[in-house]
Computed example of a mutant assay.
Amino acid sequence: MDFAGAYSPENLRFLMQGLAVTLKVAFISIIFSFIFGAFVGILRFARIPVLAGVLVIVVEIIRNLPLLLIIFFTRFALPEVGLKVFQNPEYAAIVALTVFEAAMISEIVRSGLQSIDKGQMEAARSSGLTYTQALRYVILPQALRRMVPPMVSQFISLLKDTSLATVIVLAEMMHNAQIIAGKNSNWAIPILGMAALVYFAVNFVLSLVAKRMEARHV
């Protein structure tokens, strides 16, 4: 193992460039998956006739598909029907991760809302609040406490899942680590070990943030 060569300034710079892409894709995907997932979860909780049934089918289909398949479909199938923008690996990865994670987040939101005792909604409505007001001011704040841990865990999974986008040649951290390791077989263990350490550090920080957020809402 050649640690000195693997950790040359050039290699570390290239690895950090991949990390920047990883964080960018993960951050954008987290934002959009949270927005869409929360919206779908609330709609499912509201049990709007027909719409709720359609959303259940869509969410269950997405949740039970491999993320890798969704990534491949976004990158290679959608451009074939005219959506050429997804020839860009970064756009394809963001959309695929957003779709997959939004389905997961929607289930977390729906379950969190359903975990609140029905009497809370009834009491809020009897006090004169509309359904929307009761949901916003009474149910959501309580449900949020229970949503934070599983939601952050899902976001941590999303960050790790960005590595799957290496199959569509997204220049994220694992992609760049593979390129470095391919230059010299003696660099494989050191550089992959460094990538593992970086993933651990980022996800550990996220877990600490989650614990602090959970403590504030207790």
Rank of each mutant, 00 (worst) to 15 (best):
I94A: 00
A4I: 14
P141Q: 01
V218R: 13
P79Y: 07
L170S: 07
R110N: 05
V202H: 04
W187G: 10
G5T: 08
P141Y: 02
F200L: 14
P66S: 12
I48Y: 08
K84S: 13
Y199P: 13
A92V: 08
R44Y: 03
A196D: 05
I62G: 09
M174V: 14
I94P: 04
I191T: 12
T22E: 00
P66A: 11
V21R: 00
I30P: 05
I28P: 08
E60Q: 13
F34Q: 12
K84R: 11
Q133G: 11
P49V: 11
D2L: 02
N184E: 11
I35M: 03
R47C: 06
R44M: 09
F76H: 11
P79V: 10
R63H: 11
G112Q: 01
T98G: 03
I35R: 04
M151R: 06
A143W: 07
A123R: 00
L197V: 15
I180K: 05
F73C: 12
L208P: 13
A46R: 13
G112W: 02
I31K: 01
I28N: 02
R212I: 14
K118V: 11
H217Y: 14
T166Y: 12
Q178R: 13
I57A: 07
N176L: 10
E10C: 00
L69F: 15
L113N: 06
S106L: 03
I42M: 04
R125A: 05
F72T: 14
V59T: 14
L158N: 04
Q142R: 04
L67R: 09
E172S: 08
R216L: 03
Q17E: 13
L113Q: 06
M173L: 13
